[in-house]
Simulated scan of single mutants.
Amino acid sequence: MEEKIKLEIEFPIHASPQLLYQYISTPSGLSEWFADNVNSRGEIFTFIWDDSEEKAKMLSKKSGERIKFRWLNDDADNASYFFEIKIQVDEITKDVSLIITDFIEEDEMDEAKMLWENQISDLKHVLGSA
């Protein structure tokens, strides 16, 4: 199995952290921008796009701040791979950013960056901050 590379991207977002947290941490919020539909049963979230479905386990969340998932189709021995969506507020300017952390295979890096940019663009559109 090829080692994955950590990808970290920051996106400035004009929205309150409280509102943003609803969009990154709830199935209904994630359904608005991340996937066509999202269901959860306990810690297991099911993400549905067109005709594909992926399950992820919520590893941790901190209210108003971040949520971390691991795709269940990732090998068990790669439990160190995850994706995290974190809200960061600049203490001085109060600017709000989303920090995305993901693990990508090297040959998929450009595609992954573009995918996240499109996803966050959809989120901004939903929030009215585009």
Rank of each mutant, 00 (worst) to 15 (best):
K55A: 03
S25Q: 09
I85L: 15
L115K: 14
D51I: 12
T93M: 08
A79K: 04
V126T: 03
E105P: 13
K4H: 14
L19V: 10
M114T: 14
S121F: 02
P17G: 01
D90V: 00
H14Q: 11
D95G: 14
R66D: 07
L123G: 01
G42N: 02
L19D: 03
T93V: 09
R70V: 03
I92D: 07
K61Q: 06
L72R: 00
L123W: 05
T26H: 13
K62N: 06
I24V: 06
A130P: 05
K61A: 09
N39A: 15
G42R: 09
F83W: 09
S25A: 14
K124N: 00
I104M: 14
M114W: 14
A112D: 09
M1G: 06
V126S: 06
L127D: 02
E8A: 15
F45Q: 07
I99H: 13
F69Q: 00
S52A: 10
A112E: 12
P17N: 04
F47P: 06
L123E: 00
E65A: 01
K68M: 05
F34I: 13
I92K: 13
S31K: 03
M109C: 07
Q22E: 12
V38L: 11
A130Y: 06
W116V: 12
E2P: 09
L20K: 03
S40I: 12
D110M: 09
N73H: 01
T46M: 00
T46E: 00
G128D: 06
K86I: 09
I100K: 09
K4T: 14
S25N: 10
S40A: 12
A76C: 02
Y81K: 04
E91M: 03
Y81G: 07
F45A: 05
S52C: 14
D77Q: 03
T93P: 02
A35C: 13
E108V: 11
I9M: 15
K55N: 08
D90M: 08
H14N: 12
P12S: 15
D102C: 12
I5C: 12
S28N: 03
F82P: 08
S28Q: 08
L123D: 04
S25M: 11
V89N: 07
E106T: 09
K124G: 04
I9D: 14
S28W: 04
N73M: 03
I44L: 05
K86S: 00
Q119C: 11
E43Y: 11
I92W: 08
E43P: 02
Q119D: 10
G29R: 04
T26M: 14
E32H: 02
D74A: 05
T101M: 14
L98V: 02
D110L: 06
D50L: 06
F34M: 15
D107V: 11
Y81A: 06
I67C: 00
D122K: 01
R66I: 08
E106F: 08
I5M: 14
F69G: 04
H14L: 15
L30P: 00
F11R: 09
I9L: 15
F103W: 11
E117S: 12
K55S: 01
A56R: 03
K62R: 02
M109L: 10
K113W: 12
S129Q: 06
L7Q: 10
S25K: 12
A79M: 00
P27W: 10
K57N: 08
E8C: 15
E32W: 06
K6N: 01
